[in-house]
Design a binder for these strands. Structure first.
Lengths: 220, 220
DNA sequence: CTGTCTCGCTTACACCGTAAGTGAAACGTG
DNA sequence: CACGTTTCACTTACGGTGTAAGCGAGACAG
């Protein structure tokens, strides 16, 4: 397994860290565990990495890197925003156990800049004024981060049995809160993809008010 | 300080924990540190509390508890939603260092139910059908959580000097990303309150499409 | 051959959450 | 009153954590 020849490197360390996180969760990642995965002693990592925080930074950086951005001038701004948003979500979902890092650690890190720049470019190119573009950007980021966070903390995150859904539903029904009880069947089940799309499309629709020259197409 | 007479209790422990977190941050809270704050040995806490996780649960519960909810039938649904949203934000801001707990830990914990129920009641009472109410609820939660998370991770969270803003602005300008550089002056400064209100009002406006009998008032 | 540099190694420290058991005070019941 | 029982802070100990410090073998330049 761990070839003694191949030398350690920040890249290899981050890769191994991501692998550990994917399989065992963020909490399972310790420097010793990580070193073991590389067939090495814990302190050896420090020759290539600044500490655990640096490893985690590397992981978030890695995940952030592989979300492809739309070439921003094709299509309307709606498609551009859609593309960025779904790309962000898809990249995060590719490493479910790791994504809380991406959402939680520096949202304004240098590595997020390409994405931010892309969104801003799309908006500016289609008639949003500067203030509106910044507001819209921040709103979209908030929505995306909040959605994904909800998604990952959702009890229904991984494939769960029907029984779990029933149990949750029963708990909601007996909660003593009228509205919650009434909507228990709907609250017990979540289609995260659909929920994300619903929110995103609603936001896009609302943002149309800030893109002056687009004189509205349809809106069902 | 630590009166030897007053007995330990879950309540007192949670209170002390919140105090430690407020002053030194979540990471500074250890069972030993917490015990010391109460003039007691670490293991003594375990007579009243199930472990560290339980302490943290207690803290989030405490914060969640003191956001007052509107009596849901007065005023339009817009005011109801506004009230809940701002109440949530205000309660979170009351303990800035602790709020990542509230946002991160179980969003679907029993303690969140009163708030959820309140929002749902407001929506249902004003003509939202069940599906729309659930969608709207989830959208609002996502937005709120994302907004606050952005707010707390923002480098500009605590009162910062003008110099810091200037430096950030310079960094953005020299980032090599056109749109980011152009908007650097705006991106370097954030008015979180205004940003939150902007997003909330935009959402409310968009949700009007789902409240049939309200035939629109104004919208500037 | 001899520096110097690289880099994995070992050892050690301070800290963490908590399992386990001990003993003194407080209490209900005879 | 005396008696078990319960409460609850205590001490000790275990297996983990991140990482500071320094060692030593090999590679490479002069």
């Amino acid at each position: 397994m761990s070839d003694t020849r191949t030398p350690l490197s920040r890249e290899r360390i981050v890769g191994a860290a991501l692998r550990v996180i994917d399989e065992e969760g963020v909490d399972a990642l310790s420097m010793r565990r990580l070193a073991a995965a590389l067939g090495v002693q814990a302190m050896s990592l420090y020759n290539h990495v600044d500490g655990k925080a640096d490893v985690l930074d590397g992981v978030t950086e890695f995940i952030t890197k592989d979300m492809q951005l739309p070439r921003h001038t094709e299509g309307g701004w709606e498609d551009g925003i859609r593309s960025v948003a779904h790309g962000f979500r898809r990249a995060s979902l590719r490493h479910p156990r790791a994504c809380e890092l991406v959402l939680t650690r520096q949202l304004s890190s240098p590595h997020a800049l390409p994405t931010i720049n892309c969104s801003l470019t799309v908006l500016l190119d289609h008639g949003f004024d500067e203030a509106a573009a910044v507001h819209a950007l921040r709103l979209l980021i908030s929505f995306q981060v909040g959605s994904l966070l909800r998604e990952f903390h959702s009890p229904a995150f991984k494939g769960e049995e029907e029984s779990a859904v029933q149990e949750r539903r029963a708990r909601l029904e007996g909660s003593g809160f009228g509205a919650v009880a009434k909507l228990a069947p709907r609250l017990a089940v979540i289609d995260h993809e659909a929920e994300f799309t619903f929110g995103l499309e609603l936001l896009i629709g609302a943002l149309r008010a800030y893109a002056p020259q687009t004189q509205q197409t349809h809106r069902d």
